[in-house]
Amino acid sequence: MECPLCRSSEHVTLYYAYSRFDLFECDDCKLLFQRHAETTDVARIIEEVYDDRWVAMRDKYAHLTFQDHALFNTLQLEMFRPGKGRLLEIGSGTGEFLFTAQSAGWDVTGVEASASSCKYAKQKYDLELHNALWSPELAEEWEPFDAVVFWHVLEHMARPVEFLCGVAGKLQDNGLLLFSVPNLQSFTNAIYGKQSPLLTEKDHLYHYSARSLMKLLAQTPFQPVSLFTRQVPNHLEQLLGSSTAETAYSMADKMAILTQLQGKAMGHEICCIARKRPDSAPPTSEAATETERLSQKSS
């Protein structure tokens, strides 16, 4: 079997056979991936997973979505693009981030494949999302954007290099890309091992580490500016309970653990900020060196 990222076929082995799918591991680039990931019918999976029940769950925990994700991601956007502009979000879900960005002054456009999510975003936040699976053809008549974002979407994309190249075509020169993915080297995975909830999701076609993510970006028009991991505080209680059930932690202890996890690149998710290379040129030696530095820092 060939790795869909580095195309190695000599060091790909079965990682684990789950009841609904198999995961394979490439020892060369450290990517985990499902068999036939590149030919998976993503639209069918979205229809199965992101239904009315999923939307009801999102509604129940909307305050946490705002608190833990939407506000933080909007802050990232403000830090790296303070001048605002036209923003595209791919995979808008139930609309919390896009609502927050719009409130901050961005001119927003959202694409979401789940019809139930689009209906909710309209009713709850008055957002008119495009109900479609993202493709460059969908945005063919749209003007280029100043920033494109997608949060926990890349792991669902069957052909990630093709996806990122298509996104680059809808960005202004020096446009900003922000995204996040679950972290293969997270504390969550260290605690739960091969039964981690991050690994057992059928719709997660790929599982990225900082190393494999850098290798992916090197095949696209994007140059990473910043890459780091983040652990959401609200998830820590459950993780600590799973690892040491009889140990009591003070608030100071928990804050120290959170800091250590992020410092060791073991946060729940990897966050990446990147820009288009000038004229979408291949990586220069200087850019390649910076990519390697970020990869080592986050490994």
Rank of each mutant, 00 (worst) to 15 (best):
M255D: 11
E10D: 14
A62M: 07
A132M: 03
N189I: 15
H69V: 11
F163Y: 13
S298H: 13
E10V: 08
L98K: 01
K264T: 10
H204L: 03
A70R: 05
T94V: 12
Y61P: 04
L236G: 01
K215E: 12
R20L: 12
E292K: 13
Q231N: 06
Q67R: 09
R230M: 06
L184V: 03
L14G: 05
A104P: 11
P224M: 01
V181R: 02
L205G: 00
S196D: 05
K202W: 13
T65P: 03
K276N: 08
K254N: 07
H63K: 13
V108P: 02
L178M: 13
A265G: 04
S180I: 02
K194C: 07
E269S: 14
V153M: 02
H11R: 10
C272T: 08
K60L: 11
P182L: 11
R293V: 08
Y18F: 09
K215P: 10
L32D: 04
F33W: 02
E78Q: 13
A256C: 02
F179C: 01
H268F: 14
K202T: 12
C6Y: 05
Q219Y: 02
L227F: 07
L176W: 11
T40V: 10
R230D: 05
G85V: 00
D146G: 03
S103L: 09
S103N: 09
R230H: 15
F150P: 04
R20D: 14
D173H: 14
S280D: 15
T229E: 11
F21Q: 01
Y50P: 02
D68E: 15
A115K: 12
A70W: 00
A43Y: 06
G91N: 00
P82T: 04
Q262V: 14
T291W: 11
A256I: 01
H207C: 08
Y206Q: 04
D51T: 05
M266H: 04
A245K: 15
F33R: 03
Q219C: 02
E290F: 15
F222Y: 06
I191F: 11
Q195L: 09
Y125A: 04
D203H: 09
S9C: 10
M255R: 15
E25Q: 04
M251H: 14
V108Q: 04
T291D: 10
H130K: 13
E143N: 10
G193P: 00
T65E: 12
S92N: 10
I45S: 12
S9T: 10
V111S: 06
E38S: 10
L88P: 00
H156W: 00
F97S: 01
Y16L: 08
I191H: 09
E25P: 04
Y16C: 07
E290I: 12
H204Y: 02
D68S: 07
K30R: 14
T247W: 07
